[in-house]
Design a protein around this nucleic acid. Structure first.
Lengths: 209, 209
DNA sequence: GTCTATACCTGGATAGAC
DNA sequence: GTCTATCCAGGTATAGAC
């Protein structure tokens, strides 16, 4: 890892815990193991470090989602992604992947926390936060559930409402268990309950109570 | 309003937008219209201002919920609160009240934003945030929906999963439209779709499609 | 309870030797 | 590209006059 990359790494960690203003250039330099003045050979200002994280890293987030096995838009157009949600087990697996990616993936979780904390300071940060953690997920799932309705697997009239019903509990539990590393099991059980409830509600071939 | 109260007011506004570290004592004093040194006659430190907001204001939040017409635990025990959710219209009204309270009430929204932004800095802040905006709501609604199942108005087996299904979209849309004052109508329509979907799913006497 | 003045420190950033 | 030295602005907080 280059020094520049290490600066980004340590800055992301510090920003995600102490916030942008709560983190000093010296804090970052100390974490990297260099003097604060040396840091200015790599970035011309503290703000440039932050902007680099936001700009380069929102792209990286999308790449990482794919590596993590979250289906993408292309697969969806080909109708391939639908197999990711065919059974309740695959739906559970999908929700767990999204949840654990944002909650425990070293990069995604720090990035999410940083944006959560800094969203009110700057309109652009808010836009990135909103796009990355709200719009993208719901757009994809709307298409997914729309396709599942078309194929007769789920019933329902409003795929977007379904997508919000699927994703909102993930988002909610993410925020609820954000700082409870000892309760990941509990959070996964809560998530499972929600997905099972979701599946019970929308799947066509279920038996009714 | 006393000077002390005005300090709290202005500090809350500034903290909710620029964050704790992003706000200086001089910023607060300027907003109040006094010199920063004068401020120390009312609070012995910047941190004491913040702590006062958090401590006194979490109580005030609960009082305000009641004033705002959100039913409380006592009503629930008496079975009275259930009338707040008897019809789809009353359920819509309940969801709108919770949503608009957290989104647009001057005090509640600033308090929520401040805690959202500062939650990672300090464990205690996180606890308050979690309790106020996640646990309380779900605990109440779990009891509410449990009672509605018992009275045969809703069907379902897992009142807590229902409560999360009801509240998570509120929480999600709250975060999504947090900085879109021009889109309140849009957000209320999105909320309405979710509540109607919720009602359609759980209400017993509906006709099925 | 407000002011002016000031102490003291930390923060971001630059210059220049190596 | 790292260091030391330094600058300057701004931050928190206190002292003391009014």
């Amino acid at each position: 890892m280059t020094t520049k990359e290490r600066i980004i790494e340590e800055a992301l960690t510090l920003f995600s815990v102490k916030g942008y203003h709560g983190t000093s250039v010296k804090n970052i330099a100390d974490a990297v193991g260099i003097k604060d003045s040396s840091l200015y050979k790599h970035f011309k200002s503290k703000k440039e470090i932050f902007d680099t994280i936001v700009l380069e890293m929102s792209d990286r987030m999308e790449l990482m989602s794919k590596e993590y096995g979250l289906p993408d838009d292309a697969e969806l157009e080909q109708g391939a992604a639908i197999y990711a949600a065919l059974t309740m087990e695959s739906l559970l697996s999908l929700s767990r992947k999204i949840f654990l990616f944002y909650l425990t993936d070293s990069f995604a979780s720090r990035f999410r926390r940083m944006l959560t904390a800094e969203q009110y300071r700057d309109r652009e940060i808010y836009q990135v936060y909103r796009h990355t953690f709200m719009d993208s997920a719901v757009v994809y799932q709307t298409a997914l559930f729309g396709e599942m309705i078309r194929q007769g697997i789920f019933h329902g009239e409003d795929p977007e409402a379904m997508a919000v019903n699927f994703y909102a509990p993930i988002f909610f539990l993410l925020n609820k268990y954000d700082q409870e590393p000892d309760k990941i099991e509990e959070s996964l059980m809560a998530l499972e309950r929600q997905v099972k409830e979701f599946d019970r509600i929308y799947r066509k071939d279920q038996r009714r109570g």
